[in-house]
Computed example of a mutant assay.
Amino acid sequence: MDIVVNEELKAYIDPLSPEEYEALERSLLAEGCRDALVLWGDVLVDGHNRYGICRKHGLPFQTVQNTRFRTLEDVHLWMIDQHLGRRSISDFQRGVLALRKKEIVAERRARATAGPAPAPEVPASAPSAEAIGSAPPPAPLDSREAVAKAARLSSSQVVMIEKIQKQAAPELVAAVKSGTISINAAAAVATLPAEEQVAAVVAGKDELKQAAKRVRESKRKPREEGAEAQEDGAQHGDELQALRRRVAELTAENGALRRQLAALQASSDAKEGAELSAPF
């Protein structure tokens, strides 16, 4: 059977780095192709790198049909789950794949509620619908926590990956994928204008770190100034309350002194009156 390489499927998962590809090639030359290539009909689904290396060196390989695929979406979801279960991919890649799965599942659920859809296109050599079983529907990833669990990441990491996807220049995304910059730092740099992101990437790893540091410090300064202003306001409020208490105390003391003075004045007047009325 002639194996068909679908370029869209081949590019659906990030390609191996040159170092990873060379390591795989050495492994296949030393040990052979031990894992079967996964097909959907005659379409290659899993094992594109192994297939290319085996053909290059004339190495034998085996194939296996996945009979659960009914649509290209099924293939995409299977590919995502396969890669999410592998330890070799980075945290960023797992986050991107989990978010991609979330979109596919959400679109599928939306179509299901909208009514029956037209029959999907399948390869001519794919097993007939009667010959395959229905794959269980994937669990919905309708919360950030669910996405984080699927990717084995924290919710905060998922938030940062979403920010990178939405705001990062392609050069910055490539830097994250290559491990030149961390997810945390890339999320900070992604808030800069695109030209500043690109300039930081071109300048290298150290400049990327410095750019992330500047962004964090610029965000931290307003918070610190706000905290200082709040503290100053609280201090002024305390001083005002102290002054009010002191005024109240002085007012009370003044009133007491006035009453004492009035009592002394009354006593003095009474004594003077008694002396005037006394006989000579």
Score class of each variant (00 low, 15 high):
I3E: 00
Q260D: 03
L59V: 02
R70H: 04
N49Y: 05
K205Q: 14
R26A: 14
R244N: 11
P222N: 05
E130I: 08
V5W: 00
D206M: 13
F280K: 05
E31C: 08
I181E: 10
L59Q: 02
I183S: 02
Q62V: 02
R94G: 04
L172Y: 06
F69R: 00
E196C: 04
E249W: 13
A148V: 04
A110G: 04
L192F: 05
E275P: 01
A194E: 09
D91C: 03
R50P: 02
D35A: 10
Q210S: 10
A200D: 10
E228D: 10
R214I: 03
V159D: 13
G233A: 14
Q265Y: 06
I13G: 01
V43H: 01
A146G: 06
E130R: 15
G273D: 11
S125P: 01
E249M: 11
L240G: 06
V43I: 12
E145C: 03
E19F: 14
L240S: 12
P137K: 10
D14L: 12
T67P: 03
E162D: 13
F92P: 04
K163G: 04
E130V: 12
E22M: 13
S143H: 09
G204E: 12
D81K: 10
E171K: 09
A278R: 15
Q65A: 01
L72N: 00
A124D: 11
H83E: 13
R258P: 04
Q260M: 02
I132V: 14
G133S: 09
F69A: 00
P222T: 03
E8K: 00
A98Y: 08
V64N: 02
W40K: 00
A168Y: 07
L172T: 06
A185G: 03
I53P: 01
G204K: 10
D42A: 01
G52C: 03
A203N: 09
G85K: 05
G133M: 08
